[in-house]
């Protein structure tokens, strides 16, 4: 089914657009999002991957592979530190797939799953940056200044974009 549907090309194109929109949003709203010390980071690319798992009912997509590609592009183009998000993004897809087998996905349970995913992305990203000395921020100020605002922003984006993205998937499928 996947081979024949428009998703085969539509999904990667959407993934790339979401990845680049993350950067554009951060640039355009940088005075609001990077209002130090409070930092909000948009993770639209994670939203695209997670919603793909949520809507994946009868078509199986090679999400893990695309997550690796997205992570590689993220590492090379945005951060310049290779080897961080290339592992985190596939892990998010894997964890989401496990959670979906226990909780049937709908709007509200998806919100919970997305909450866990964003915490995972930000937490592991923080640990990796601590390891390579990209940051010296303590764990407690990470929780207050970065994780909290980031969760707020991304859950708001989830609520706004859940139905539009589902519409896009249905149209592609």
């Amino acid at each position: 089914m996947y081979r024949l549907s428009k998703l085969r090309f539509g999904f990667p194109i959407g993934l790339l657009i979401m990845l680049l929109l993350d950067g554009s949003l951060s640039h355009i709203f940088s005075s609001q999002m990077f209002n130090y010390p409070t930092v909000m980071v948009s993770h639209l690319v994670v939203l695209w991957l997670v919603t793909a798992v949520l809507y994946e009912e009868n078509v199986t997509m090679p999400l893990g592979r695309w997550a690796i590609v997205a992570g590689a592009v993220f590492d090379l183009y945005y951060t310049g530190i290779f080897g961080v998000y290339i592992f985190i993004f596939p892990l998010v897809v894997y964890v989401t797939r496990i959670m979906v087998t226990y909780i049937s996905p709908n709007f509200l349970s998806g919100l919970l799953i997305y909450f866990i995913d964003i915490t995972l992305v930000e937490g592991l990203g923080f640990l990796a940056s601590r390891v390579v000395h990209m940051t010296v921020i303590s764990g407690s100020s990470f929780l207050v200044n970065t994780l909290g605002p980031t969760l707020a922003l991304n859950l708001a984006l989830y609520v706004i974009l859940y139905f539009p993205i589902r519409w896009v998937y249905n149209w592609l499928n």
């Binding site: 951060s26 640039h27 945005y78 951060t79 310049g80 990203g125 940056s129 990209m134």
Partner: peptide, 15 residues
């Protein structure tokens, strides 16, 4: 011209 900004709280970087 600035194209984009790294969406990360650990690196204040623009492209």
């Amino acid at each position: 011209a600035v194209i984009t900004r790294t969406p990360s709280s650990w690196q204040n970087q623009v492209v």
